[in-house]
Design a protein around this nucleic acid. Structure first.
Lengths: 333, 333
DNA sequence: CCGGACGGGTAATACGTATGACTGAACGGC
DNA sequence: GCCGTTCAGTCATACGTATTACCCGTCCGG
């Protein structure tokens, strides 16, 4: 039991020859004009010597707080959300906050009814990723920050990726290579980020002289993606480039292309989105947009902590970055 | 603040017309012979009606416990550990426990000095994955369960994968296809699981009539793996099959093979280990050994909870499963 | 008819912290 | 020389729970 026998503020008080209240005042930083600098110093010394760490349970009880925030993500088994967690947890730890994770139930499209959705312990705030603000449900009046979920009105702060810019960068890159007939393999997932990706691509291609966009959607898995990409490739006047909503979808597109004897990038350019580990494991390596997932978690947590301490954080947008690798080339190269 | 205004045991007591102690007795389940069934029933009814949830902070303070366990993993950014967390958290949640994660610092080979290693809050137990029991360091006398870390002596329970059996299954599969010259692309990582994998493969090939094993090691990333696999392929009498310690390493082997104009599986069979998402995204799909990562987390947590409640859990081993896909075939097929 | 046992419940307390109310000494102003 | 202030702390209390010690009425054995 790493709790037993730990020094308490009372022990520190005794060691320093002061009262427990003084210890609490000093260590809480609220001693301006109440405790002499000399006393404060000796208290700090005593605390240091004893290796005093405040008992969080007692502090939480007293303050009616928990120093715990809930991170709601669709899953931790997808490659994207691990880093989000890491970034959030790291930022939280610096402020003495813990992070508990709630994932959506398997095969669910939203967080509702998750066995995780309402952890027994109370929480101070929520970091909710990739979901509509309405889905907060019972947590409506808990301070929350929405991640990668798009604009959410005045009431709740957001941190998003600049996915539209990212998609425009892809479109510009392909256009620059000479592509005009572009296929979009979209994720059939009702999340802001995918709507934004699709919308940005559509308008970018529409603005391109001679641009033609075809479109198919699929679930975010290789099999489904392969099938959807195949539909686009089998159409008359097939596209010379496939823009995929996600790296994993791009992997499916690779398979569809190979099954038809098309070489990437000579016969077909393919792009992904997110830049997960997979992107460099594929062959050829995937041109994609890198989204700073860990940064999303970190900035989200910073925003939430700001909110919790009474701030009025403004929305933030983290730019994606086009990473050109080997899967794109001029058409017919 | 989802804490404010929550009903307390005192509120329940009032609602039920009994004292707070009675409520605590009933809800704690320790009322045998102290409270009449009728009263107990009415207390439960009142608690239900008010939606009472005990305040964890108060309970923790009283009991000197935290209902929090620490999960130590190398990283959450690798595809393998997300599911481990999920399994552990799910099992923990069922018993009202929370899980906080500590990852190793970037580029570290062990958990030492991690900013996460000593979260401020105290913990009741530790689930430590993929590390030597000695590395527990300052947590030596906290109840702990080692995951995927090999035998750890009498004092600390373990949950491991049957990696040796898995590797033997791979060897048998390849031998059955007719392979004799086998290359091992090993992970140059000082973890039990990789030592076990290498050892099992070595003895399996040694036991194979005419079996020849060559070996190269690398870090667990595509570039490094490609280089290591290349060394094996460039040797005289190159192997007809490459056994990789990890799916990601197999991805590197694919690249090395392609760079040399070798077709998989016609000219070269390749196997992986772990069966992460990547395995089916590759082309051809990867023959590998599936390790039930989520199950590891779940069983590990079950073991830890058992330990915490005074049990003496015995070591468990979770079998891996050979998944034959498209990357293996008879040599020269 | 009395004492003890027992069933059914309550009162009181401690866990460790943060904080508002209070106190005693020194000191300055008039 | 006395009072109001400030300084430097301390006292007491509350947060919500679990548990130990106690209490009261009833029933039963002798």
């Amino acid at each position: 039991m790493s709790l037993a026998g730990r020094p308490t503020s009372k022990d520190v008080a005794q060691e320093a020859g002061v009262s427990q209240s003084t210890v609490s005042l000093v260590l809480g930083g609220k001693w301006a004009g109440r405790v002499s600098p000399a006393t404060a110093h000796s208290v700090r010394g005593a605390a240091e010597r004893l290796g005093y760490r405040p008992n969080q349970a007692a502090r939480n009880l007293r303050l009616g707080t928990t120093r715990t925030v809930l991170l709601m993500v669709p899953t931790l088994s997808a490659p994207f959300f691990g880093p989000v967690y890491t970034g959030a947890a790291r930022a939280a730890a610096r402020h003495g906050f813990a992070v508990v994770v709630s994932t959506w139930p398997d095969d669910a499209v939203g967080p509702a009814d998750s066995p995780f959705a309402a952890p027994d312990e109370a929480i101070d705030g929520i970091l909710a990723s990739s979901m509509a603000v309405e889905a907060l449900g019972g947590f409506r009046d808990t301070p929350a920050v929405m991640l990668d979920s798009g604009p959410a009105g005045e009431r709740v702060p957001t941190v998003d990726f600049g996915v539209a810019d990212g998609m425009r960068a892809i479109a510009a890159h392909l256009a620059g290579l000479g592509h005009r007939r572009i296929g979009h393999v979209g994720a059939a997932v009702d999340q802001w980020t995918f709507h934004a990706r699709g919308g940005a691509l559509a308008s970018a291609v529409a603005a391109l002289p001679g641009g033609v966009l075809t479109r198919a959607t699929c679930a975010i898995d290789v099999t489904s993606a392969k099938e959807a990409a195949g539909r686009l490739l089998d159409a008359p006047d097939r596209p010379t480039a496939l823009v995929c909503d996600d790296d994993l979808i791009a992997a499916g597109a690779y398979k569809a292309a190979r099954a038809r004897g098309l070489d990437i990038p000579a016969d077909l350019s393919v792009t992904g989105f997110d830049d997960v580990l997979l992107a460099t494991a594929l062959e050829p390596e995937l041109t994609t947009v890198r989204l700073p997932a860990e940064e999303l978690g970190a900035q989200g947590m910073a925003t939430l902590l700001d909110l919790l301490s009474g701030g009025r954080p403004s929305p933030r947008v983290l730019p994606g970055e086009l990473v050109v690798r080997e899967s794109t080339a001029p058409p017919g190269a």
